[in-house]
Design a protein around this nucleic acid. Structure first.
Lengths: 145, 145
DNA sequence: CAGTATCCCTCAAGATACTG
DNA sequence: CAGTATCTTGAGGGATACTG
């Protein structure tokens, strides 16, 4: 890709940061409450040097922070920053699309529910601030300089 | 990654399909109305063999379809299928996250607006079917077998 | 124009061993 | 436990030439 070229598209910049094989899965694990190096490693079955590299990059990108463990253990833990936390809609959108199209009827999968009530989530859908749902063709990209 | 391992997580499956350097950018172009090989190539500045490969994979994944051009030209065009079209929330979520965190105040960027009214889009946010906004920690993943 | 066919090269990725 | 260091491999990617 063009690393040197100035990327004015926010999609491109996001993809540059989190659009690789491991980053999004690490982030998914973080949303599931995983905090420790060895737990990421076991769950994702990723080589340790790769995991180490990716975690460092995510810390660098201010998506994760590496802080003293909250439970009193001697080690550090990786937790989402506010900026990383804001990736939640992306994770949910990826999850919902996968649920819809990538599983056969009878295949085991998993769904996201509200913790207290067990309520299902609505399908995420872009809308205006007034609450009107928008199809892709009802939108356009405006450049701001 | 573990190609052979059965992936029960919808996020993982989605990432396997569209979580690479080019796929999401190709899809973004498709949402912007790009249909022709050479236009993808010019806009993305990607090697032709790579583009060829990625387009084929996206057609294979039923995200794009390669059909006779609608404008009467002799060539084929790549357009989003319904399944590809359903990626719109993911693109918007990526865009909004990038807009929020990856641009300095004064940097040129772009935003998505409603075509007819110019209205801004609301920040996408997961919610229940009853319309209640949900934070990540208010959700849990339930396995379905 | 819309690709395919080669060639080459870099870097991501994995395995393994080692360290504080 | 939580990494770093080293080595090897292979896939992803780019440049170029060629084809219907």
């Amino acid at each position: 890709m063009n690393q040197d070229k100035y990327e004015a598209c926010p999609v491109a910049r996001s993809v540059q940061l989190i659009g690789d094989r491991w980053a999004l899965l690490i982030i998914r694990e973080a949303f599931d409450g995983v905090k420790r190096f060895s737990d990421f490693q076991k769950n994702l079955n990723v080589a340790k040097n790769i995991l180490s590299d990716r975690l460092a990059k995510l810390v660098d990108a201010q998506i994760l922070k590496n802080q003293p463990a909250s439970n009193g253990s001697a080690y550090l833990e990786y937790v989402l920053t506010a900026q990383g936390y804001a990736l939640f809609p992306i994770i949910v959108a990826l999850r919902q699309w996968g649920e819809q199209f990538l599983f056969a009827e009878d295949q085991p999968h998993s769904i996201l529910l509200e913790k207290n009530t067990g309520d299902e989530l609505a399908l995420m859908q872009p809308m205006t601030k007034k609450g009107k749902h928008l199809l892709a063709q009802e939108t356009f990209v405006k450049k701001i300089n």
